[in-house]
Structure formats: C-alpha cells, structure tokens
C-alpha cells in the first residue's frame, strides 16, 4: 500500500520528477540528433561541449533570444494559450507513472510516484487527447492556410489513433484487472508459469499484438515520423506551428518531446513490467534505472523509425487506422476475453 506522505513531500517528489522530465526532454533532442547522425553517417552536434552535450542548452538560449512574431491577422489570445495547452497536458500526464513502490529516504516513507489514481491509465489517455487542442487551436489562431491544414490533419489523426491506442490497452486491463498503473505494474512483477521456463509476466509476452498496435498508434498520437502529417514540411511549410517563433515555438517543441517520453514511460510500465528487472526488488534505484533503460529503448525506436521510414500519405494513414488496426485490436480484445473466461472456467 502507498504510504501516507505529508503534502509537502508529495510536492517535492512531483518537483523532482517534473524537473528530471524537463532535463530528459532537453537531452532527448541531443540523443535524437546523435542517433540520427550516426544512422546517416554524420557527426551530429560536436562544437558545444564534449560530444555536443551542451547543445540543448545552446538551443534553449537561442530560442529564448529570438524575436517573438505574432501574425497581424492572428487570434491573439488563442495564439498565446495554444502552445501552453500542449506543454501542460504533456507534463501533467507523468503524475500517474510509478517509478517504484514506497521506499525509505532519510527516515521518511516516500512514494516513488506522484499519485496512484485508480484510473491512471485512462488519465494518461485523457490528457493525451486534450493535448491535441494545443495543435488545432494554434493552427486556427495563426490565420495561415498551411497551419489550418496541419491542424485539421492533426485533429482527424489524433481522434482516429486515440481509439486504437485506448482499445490496444483493453487487453492489458483485462489481464491485470485494474486501471491503476501501479497495480498493472505489480501484476507484471510475478512469474509467468510455463513449465521449465521462468519468464517474467510482462504483458508484452501475453499481449504481443496489443503491444505492436500500441506502438504504431503511439507514434501517430505523438505526431512523429512516419506519421508527422500535421507538420509535413514538404507540403505544409511546417504545418500547425508555421507562424510560431521563439519561445512559443519552443513550447510546441517541449510538448512534443515530453509527450514522447511520457508515452514511452507509459509503454514501459504497461508492457515491459515497469521497474521490474534483476535486482529491482532489493534496490529501488536499480528499479528506476531499469524503467529508464526501457524508456530509452522506446525513444531509440522512435528515432530509428524517423530515420528509416518515409512519411505516409494521408489517405494511407487513415486507411491503416480504420481498416487494419481497428479490426485487429478488436480481435485482440475478443480473443483475450475468451481466453480469460476459459481460464476462469466460465466457458466449457
């Protein structure tokens, strides 16, 4: 059971987690540039600090120092708030991700999560779905046709893939019997009984189809290549954030990368056992390390996809969601439910 923490301690945990997330986002950009450079036989950033490690800071200073342009025809208030929506919703989603159980630090019982909501998994999906308002409102407020087209694409794409994303998780919910991310993680920290083989009960093993579909939908939900239609630079200049510059643009940038990190943390918790790994029972620090390693693996996968695959055509994108992924994910739910019933002895 989670310990009863005083409120200030909860704020400390939240403060630490969110700041680590922000720094993680900054270094995600460095990681992406380095990995992409390696895959394309380039060097990537090298001038700023050793191995270009100070590049994110240089980028940040550059973005803050640029001129803040607002188009004359823009809807000023909406234009101002739209980037904040995507940034705030992205960062708030991390509140339900468990980084471990309850541990004792300096004599105080500390929960290694901000809150254990009983609908935690749906909470992440809900904030993901609010985040799209940042895109479509920003696109509308820019009073630019390229932006508007990007916003319309984002709206249709996110609504379609949200359904896939949510349904892909239904199988996981059925097996774990809970919507709380902490309980889903605890369910996976048992052993799968397969005779001589002792495998961890990670849901990637029992729900492989759901995992693959989740990964595809997650890439589309975060508007990343090859599903980055809303900001397709070959057709739409840069889509919904064409008119944004300086720190307003950086909020979109922050939001996109934090979204990627949160979705990866979420996937690691749901499908890869969260903090589960060798030695994680004894040392909670090791558990956090395992979770971060799994997250980095997912982030590497994102970058890998971006360097490998060309962008989808818009009708292909929609066709895949509704004609391929939706039937597959429904099939997954039916099969999982049936196996669950047979296992409980309620059928046959």
């Amino acid at each position: 059971m989670p310990a009863d923490m005083p409120l200030w301690l909860n704020f400390v945990v939240a403060f630490v987690i969110m700041n680590v997330l922000l720094v993680g986002m900054a270094y995600m950009t460095w990681f992406e540039r380095k990995v992409m450079a390696a895959m394309q036989d380039r060097m990537g950033p090298t001038r700023t600090g050793p191995a270009g490690l100070l590049q994110p800071i240089a980028d940040g200073i550059k973005l803050l120092g640029k001129e803040d342009l607002i188009p004359a025809a823009a809807d000023k208030l909406v234009f101002f708030f739209a980037p904040l929506i995507i940034f705030v919703t992205a960062i708030v989603s991390v509140a339900v991700i468990p980084f471990g159980g309850t541990v004792e630090i300096f004599g105080a019982d500390v929960n290694l999560f901000i809150t254990d909501l009983n609908v935690g998994a749906l909470y992440v999906l809900a904030f993901g779905s609010i985040g799209v308002y940042g895109i479509i409102l920003g696109a509308y407020a820019s009073a630019n046709r390229f932006s508007l087209l990007g916003g319309l694409r984002a709206a249709a794409q996110v609504v379609s893939y949200e359904i896939i994303l949510g349904l892909a998780l239904v199988g996981v919910f059925m097996l774990s019997g809970s919507l709380s991310l902490r309980e889903i993680m605890l369910t996976q920290q048992t052993e799968l009984d397969l005779g001589p083989l002792a495998l961890p009960n990670w849901f990637i093993l029992s729900q492989p189809l759901a995992f693959v579909i989740y990964m595809i939908a997650a890439v589309a939900e975060t508007n990343r290549a090859p599903f980055d239609l809303p900001e397709a630079e070959t057709e739409l200049v840069s889509g919904f954030h064409t008119e944004y510059s300086a720190f307003r643009f950086s909020f979109y940038f922050l939001g996109e990368y934090i979204n990627m990190i949160v979705i990866s943390l979420f996937a690691a918790t749901l499908f890869l056992g969260g903090t589960d790994g060798p030695g994680s029972d004894a040392y909670w620090g090791l558990g956090i390390l395992w979770l971060l390693l799994k997250t980095v693996a997912f982030l590497f996968f994102y970058v890998w996809l971006r360097t490998t695959l060309p962008r989808f055509r818009y009708d292909q994108l929609m066709g895949i969601a509704w004609k391929v992924l939706l039937p597959l994910v429904l099939l997954n739910i039916v099969v999982t439910a049936f196996i669950r019933l047979v296992g409980n002895g309620q059928v046959f």
Binding site: L117, V119, Y123, S129, I136, Y140, A155, E162, L179
Partner: peptide, 26 residues
C-alpha cells in the same frame, strides 16, 4: 467518480469537441 471524469474528458472533450472545432475552423 474518477472513471466518469476520465470518460467525460476522453469522449466529449477529446473526441467530439475536437471534431466540432474541426468543422468550426473551416
């Protein structure tokens, strides 16, 4: 009623109103 709250956000705010705005923007 956390479940109702989340469903309210996912269904109404996250899907239906996005499509409503989709049309209104045009």
């Amino acid at each position: 009623a956390e479940f109702l709250a989340v469903v309210q956000v996912i269904v109404y705010t996250g899907a239906i109103l996005v499509l409503v705005l989709f049309v209104l923007m045009l």
